[in-house]
C-alpha cells in the first residue's frame, strides 16, 4: 500500500536486506574475478578505482554526452508517441481492441534483428541510435497507457457528466489524474528499455557513447575499460530506476 504504513523497524530491515544483496553481488563479482582472472574481468576494487580516474577524463565525458543526447531524444520521442498512441487507442475502443494484441506480438520480436534495417534507413550515427531506442521504448509506453485508459472505471466519467463538467474539465480533472500513475509506470519501463536500445545501438554501429566504449574495450582487450564502463552504466541505471520507482510509489500512494 504505502510507505507511510511501513513501520520504521520494517524499513530498517528492508535497508539491511538491500545492503546484503549489494554485498552478495560484490562477493560474486570477486568470485568471478578469482575464477576467470584479469583477462576477462577486473576486481571490484580495481574497477572502482579506474572508474573514478575515468571521471576526470575529457574523452569519457564526451562519450557520456553522446549517449545522454541519444537517450534523452529517444525517451522523449518514445514517451510522446507512446502516450499519444495509447490515449488515442484507449479512447477509440475498437482500434484499441484490434491493435493491442498486434502490439504485444510485435513487442516479442527480438528487436536487434531489425538493426541492420534501421542502419540502412537512418545511416550510421545519432539518428540510428535514437530510432533503435525508440523502437524499444515506444510499445511498452503505448500498452501501459492503453491499459490505463481501458481500465478507467466508467462511473468516474459518469460522475463527471453528472457534475456537469465540460469535456475539457473532464479531460484535465478526471481522465488525466485517473490514468497518470499507470502511464508513469509505463514511462518507467520505457526508460529502462530505451536505455537498452540506445546502448545496443551504440555497440554495433557507432563511434561514440557508452555502448561504443564497452565494445571498444572488448575489441582492444581493454578489460579495465569495459568493466568500469559497465559498472558506471549499471549504477546509473539502478539509481535512476530507484528514483522513478519511488516517484511511482508516491503517485500510487493514494490508490
Amino acid at each position: 500500500m504505502s510507505a507511510t504504513l511501513v513501520r520504521p523497524a520494517r524499513r530498517r530491515s528492508l535497508a539491511l536486506d538491500q545492503l546484503l544483496i549489494v554485498l552478495a553481488l560484490l562477493v560474486c563479482w570477486q568470485g568471478a574475478y578469482a575464477y576467470a582472472g584479469s583477462s576477462a574481468i577486473t576486481s571490484p576494487f580495481a574497477t572502482v578505482a579506474y572508474a573514478i580516474s575515468m571521471l576526470e577524463q575529457g574523452w569519457f565525458w564526451s562519450n557520456v554526452g553522446a549517449t545522454a543526447l541519444a537517450f534523452v531524444s529517444s525517451l522523449a520521442i518514445a514517451s510522446l508517441l507512446g502516450v499519444l498512441a495509447g490515449l488515442g487507442l484507449g479512447l477509440w475502443r475498437f482500434a484499441g481492441d484490434v491493435t493491442e494484441p498486434v502490439l504485444a506480438a510485435l513487442y516479442t520480436i527480438p528487436k536487434v534483428t531489425l538493426y541492420p534495417l534501421i542502419l540502412l534507413l537512418f545511416g550510421l550515427g545519432l539518428s540510428a541510435k535514437v530510432a533503435f531506442g525508440v523502437i524499444h521504448g515506444v510499445i511498452p509506453v503505448t500498452l501501459f497507457t492503453l491499459a490505463a485508459v481501458k481500465g478507467l472505471p466508467p462511473v468516474l466519467l459518469r460522475s463527471a457528466r453528472a457534475m456537469r463538467l465540460s469535456p475539457r474539465q473532464t479531460l484535465l480533472h478526471v481522465l488525466a489524474p485517473a490514468v497518470l500513475p499507470e502511464i508513469f509506470t509505463g514511462l518507467r519501463v520505457g526508460f529502462s528499455l530505451t536505455l537498452l536500445g540506445v546502448l545496443i545501438g551504440e555497440m554495433f554501429a557507432s563511434q561514440k557513447g557508452m555502448g561504443f566504449l564497452i565494445l571498444n574495450g572488448i575489441n582492444l582487450h581493454n578489460v579495465k575499460l569495459t568493466t568500469a564502463v559497465v559498472l558506471i552504466v549499471v549504477v546509473t541505471a539502478i539509481l535512476a530506476n530507484a528514483g522513478l520507482l519511488a516517484a511511482d510509489k508516491r503517485l500510487r500512494r493514494q490508490r
Partner: peptide, 11 residues
C-alpha cells in the same frame, strides 16, 4: 446523482 459504484476520486 449518486451512483451504486464507488465514484470517489482516489487521487
Amino acid at each position: 446523482v449518486v451512483f451504486q459504484e464507488d465514484a470517489s476520486f482516489p487521487w
